[in-house]
Simulated scan of single mutants.
Amino acid sequence: MIIQTERLTLREWRDDDRAPFAAMSADPAVMRYLRALPTRQACDQWIDFQIKHHAEHGFGFWVVEERASGAFLGATGLFRVFFDAPFTPAVEIGWRLSRAAWGQGIATEAARAALAFGFDKLGLDEVIAYAAPANEASQNVMRKLGMVRDEASDFDHPRVEADSPLRRQVMYRLPREVWAIASR
């Protein structure tokens, strides 16, 4: 499956995406607010998980590449939340972009395409997103997408160490009805 926007292509993973994904994941600035992928093996396992998620659910994180050049820019997409929390079951949207793609609206453009797929093709009722409180850039993208902060649903991520500054997460939500109005 391929999704195209004005500037971007969102597509499924290929083996030649592994090296640029690992290079991006080795950048401390990119990973500042994300759970670490400290080795090439960890990066490959993350990609393998995305491929499996696509096969099982019909969606996951896609590679984001620049349409004009085919350059690897990162990944964005939807995936099922696989831990127990008061808000699960849920489908989350997320993104991870190389530093070269920052500040150009790439995350917002790619995420809008993923949301359109989720609401229009998958028929989702709601999509959530969460981030560390200090991750203002991701929260800005969430707001640009029309997502609304749900402070009552902020939570401690069960897969993050208790003493980590990434443990606490702020929650944003986007119901189908709000998407329908915002995407007109």
Rank of each mutant, 00 (worst) to 15 (best):
A36W: 05
F61M: 03
R67L: 13
L37T: 05
A162E: 14
G58T: 10
A134N: 04
A152G: 07
A36H: 14
G70C: 06
V30L: 13
P175L: 13
F119N: 00
A113N: 06
W13F: 15
E56L: 08
Q45C: 08
S153H: 05
R35Q: 12
Y130I: 04
C43E: 04
E6Q: 10
F119I: 08
N135P: 04
E56D: 07
G103I: 09
G74Q: 01
P158V: 12
F87C: 01
F119T: 02
A116T: 10
R99C: 07
L10R: 03
D17V: 11
E6A: 14
Q104N: 08
D120I: 03
R159T: 08
L124Y: 02
A75V: 02
P20A: 15
F87W: 05
A68V: 09
A90W: 01
R99H: 06
Q50Y: 03
V160F: 08
F49Y: 07
K121P: 00
N140Q: 07
T88R: 09
P133F: 15
R67Q: 11
E65Q: 11
W13Y: 10
A129H: 02
A75E: 02
P165H: 12
Q139P: 01
A110P: 00
A101V: 13
A68C: 12
G118Q: 03
A71V: 11
L37I: 09
P133A: 15
D163Y: 05
D84C: 05
V81I: 15
R99V: 14
I2S: 11
R176P: 00
R167H: 13
F87G: 00
G103F: 05
R167N: 07
R143F: 09
T39F: 07
F83K: 04
T5Y: 03
A75L: 10
D163V: 11
Q41T: 15
Q45R: 13
F117M: 12
F117E: 09
F117A: 12
G74Y: 01
V81G: 01
A116H: 06
A42Y: 05
W46P: 00
F59P: 00
V30A: 09
E92A: 02
T88N: 05
D44W: 02
D17A: 13
N140L: 14
K144T: 09
A90V: 05
R40Y: 09
D15C: 05
R176M: 05
E66K: 08
R7F: 05
W102K: 04
K121T: 09
R184A: 10
E65Y: 03
A182Y: 02
E177M: 11
A114H: 01
A90S: 08
L166C: 10
D44K: 06
E56K: 01
G146K: 06
D150K: 07
D44V: 06
G70D: 12
A110G: 06
W95M: 06
V178M: 10
F21I: 10
L122R: 03
R173N: 06
V91G: 00
H157L: 11
R32M: 14
A129M: 05
S69A: 04
S164Y: 12
S138E: 03
V127D: 00
E177F: 06
L37V: 05
L73M: 09
A22R: 03
G146L: 09
A26K: 07
V63I: 15
R167D: 06
D27F: 14
